[in-house]
Every structure is written in C-alpha cells, then in structure tokens.
Amino acid sequence: MPDAAANDIPTEDVPEGAAVGVRAGQAHFFADLDQSPVLGAVDAPDESSAPSSLWRDAWVQMRGRVLFWVSAAIILLVVLVALFPGVFSQTDPRFCDLSRSVGGPEAGHWFGFDRQGCDVYARVIFGARASVTVGVLTTLGVSVFGVIIGSLAGYYGKWFDAILSRITDIFFAIPLLLAAILVASVFSESRTTFLIAGVLAVFGWPQIARITRGAVMSVKNNEFVTAAQALGLSRSGILLRHIIPNAIAPVIATATVALGTFIVVEATLSFLGVGLPPSTVSWGGDISRAQAVIRTSPQLLLYPGAALGLTVLGFIMMGDVVRDALDPKARTR
C-alpha cells in the first residue's frame, strides 16, 4: 500500500523547505498569498445578478434566437389573418365567375382565379380561419384532456395508472388519420370545424397524456415533493402546486408542435373529401380541387399549399424553440 511508502518519507525533523528524501518538483510548496486567489467567506451568496426564474431564463434564451422571431412573426400573421380576414382581402372568396376560370393574375387579383373562377388570393386569406380554428381547438382539447389523464395516471400510479394507461394504449393504437377518416366518413352530413376538431381531439390526446405521465412520474420523486408532504399539504394540493407546474414544460413544447400536426391532418381530411364541407373555405379543400388541373395550372396548388406549409412551419419551429429553451438538460448546473 502506498501509505507504507508515505511513512518512509521523513517529515518530522525536516527543516522547512528542505528536500531530504523528496524528489525534484515535489518539495513542499505553497502559493504566495499575494498571488493565490483571495479567500472570501465560505459560500457567500452572489448578489450581483438580477433574480431570474426558470421561465425568465427560458424567455431570455428564446429571445436571442432568430428562429423564435421568425416563427413568432409567422404565427402572429396567421392568427391576425384568421381573426380579421376582411382586413387583408375585400374580395368575397365565395363569389365566383366561371368565365374567369383558371384566369391569370390581374390588378386586385394577384394570385389569379381557380377553376370555378373564384379569387385565389381571397380564398387563401379566408382559408386561414378554418385551419387555425381546428388547430387551436384541437390543441386545447388534447392538452386539457391529456394533462388530466396523464398527471392522474403518473401521480396516483398503481392500478389507477394501469387502467388509464391501457385506455391510452387503446386510443394510441388507432392512427390519428385513420380514426379521423373513419368517423368523418360516418358523419357525412354534419362536418363542421367543431366536429373535426372534436374528432381529432378524441384521438389525439394519448400523446400528450403519455408525455405528461412520464414528466409527472419523474417530478414526483423529487425531494421537494416529500418535503411538501411533510408539511401536510394534501395530495391534490401537491399535484396542482408543485408537480404540474414542474411537469408542464415538455407538454407545452409538444402541444405547440402538435398544433401544426393537427392543421396538417385537417387539411388531409379535406383533401380526401371527408374533412370540412366544400361550403367552408379551406386550404385542404382548395388543394383537393386543384388536383384536377394540376398539370396545366400548378399555381392553384402552390398558393394554398404554401400558406398551409408556412403556417405549420411557424408552429413546429416555435415548438422546437420552446423545447430547447425549456429543456433542463440544456441548462448548466
């Protein structure tokens, strides 16, 4: 053992600084007090920086990224268009003149006309509302439902979790698009934006539920939860005050991306003819109708397609930025 060797080194009666038995470069050395770091009080709090919560840190991190501002601008624009389409186009998207079928761009009709002779620009502007409505409503639905189911399953565990998880599995086993096609084709009469959003929400919540469950399960093992129990805080109080606020970050990121996905699914349904009825102006429906003349007038596909792509891009980019900003692994310490 090395300590046997250590004992061989004479230390007792060695005068200060002498190197008897000590090899070159290993003599007793101590840093010059003038040059060594100043010793402050042990563990003194650093009061120089401004206080910052996790949310504030996330915000500081997000606002430094270009992608954040780009996606925020896209989302803001799309939401404004969806809320006040009249501001962006004075033309009635449902006013069609067959004589102008597939007409090219002209003053006041920058994108030209579609097969029925309706103004393409107006239809792109007025189509935003359907997509955004379905996306927002569905996301609200799945978030509320998914967070409730997921946090109950994750927090209470045991048989309660077993049952809720099996139910989640069942809904998860049916692919979202297939489920929507199935239900929508049965409801041939009454397909409104609300119905489509409802159908998507009914089959879209398992993803959020699974993520919430995982996050809740990892948060609930923290010692601050045990400390809250020891304070006498009730189970539901702990769940609401301590666990959900700490578990919500990945849910927000996922939900933002999911909003984009729901818009795509709605458009796909409309494209297949089982989404919103032809009477509702929607990008998916317009793309579907453009299909017939795609070889001659591909621009009819391009405009609603680009609007749809840009909108979805805005939301998934935002989801990405939010995830990076809230990711605990990205943090130092």
Binding site: A6, I9, T11, Q26, H28, F29, F30, A31, S36
Partner: peptide
C-alpha cells in the same frame, strides 16, 4: 490554481 503541494504528512 495549486495553492499547496508536498509530502502528504507534512501538509
């Protein structure tokens, strides 16, 4: 920085 080094027992 190294503030001190040397034979263990001496330190």
């Amino acid at each position: 920085k190294i503030v001190e080094s040397g034979p263990s027992r001496q330190i």
